[in-house]
Design a binder for these strands. Structure first.
Lengths: 146, 146
DNA sequence: TATTGTTATACTCTATAACTATA
DNA sequence: TATAGTTATAGAGTATAACAATA
């Protein structure tokens, strides 16, 4: 499984910026759709709401995310990335790109570029699709993971 | 992080065959280099020997891997995939491929093929490189992860 | 009643450190 | 002494179930 292998490489790169891979993913999702409820984050990551609480605790403690009650619906909680969080994410992205580029050197140059481009495209397609689904099901039942 | 996203999709596909992602990876590494010592598995997966013991316990208990002392050096333990293990791995591979193909449908057909091909190539390049390194350092110090 | 999110609990993966057995 | 592997322990992510607060 290349995917797991490469994800593990990314995870190791993140160690240097004191972020776990799940924390990084949560920060990314938040940054791409700021602010977010816990439900949206859970849906975007295919994770249960309880997991969001657990992982987000670390980001909040580190000062990377601000957690505040939603004034319009007081059951909800909005999560917002702080400046420190945005800065950390940028650093993390650089670290990951660097490591991945190093591994891509096992391919010839043309193949490496194709692979990186394909992954980027795929990423964008998946995120858009997931966001569209979320938007389409406003008010759907909670915690559903597909 | 597309990689983590796709790896998670694979993980969910594996649930149906009662395998965790780390177990699946271990089974793959074993099948590709059968039999293996614990050290080799640890090296191939960038994981510590203690982790190999822990994860392998499950595979042995399930009857997917046979664990036997090495007669030539009784400190070593050889791990060998059983027929059941090989069969399970084949099923798991099918499940993963199916899920991934479903996700690739968010790309246009040409892009999807490029992406899958790029991943396959990358996989082969990484595995070969890793195996070559392992062969090159017979007798190197244990548990080293790079 | 239904939904949002948290807390409590348990399981897996992972690392580190200490240990046993073998070389 | 050094190496192979296990056991013990701890920390993080994850899910399920039970719960509180709000709608």
């Amino acid at each position: 499984m290349v995917l797991a292998r490469l994800a593990r490489v990314a995870e190791r790169a993140l160690l240097r910026v004191e972020l776990t891979l799940p924390q990084y993913r949560m920060l990314s999702v938040l940054t791409a759709g700021n602010p977010s409820t816990a439900s949206r984050v859970a849906w975007m990551l295919s994770v249960k709401p309880a997991t969001v609480t657990a992982v987000m605790d670390g980001l909040v403690a580190g000062g990377y995310v601000r957690r505040e009650p939603d004034p319009t619906d007081r059951r909800k909680v909005t999560h917002e990335v702080t400046d420190a969080g945005r800065h950390l994410l940028a650093t993390a992205n650089d670290a990951i790109r660097g490591q991945l580029a190093g591994l891509a050197s096992f391919l010839d140059e043309e193949q490496a570029e194709l692979a990186m481009a394909a992954l980027t495209l795929w990423h964008q397609a998946l995120v858009s699709a997931r966001q569209a689904e979320w938007a389409a099901r406003e008010g759907a039942q909670r915690g559903e993971c597909r």
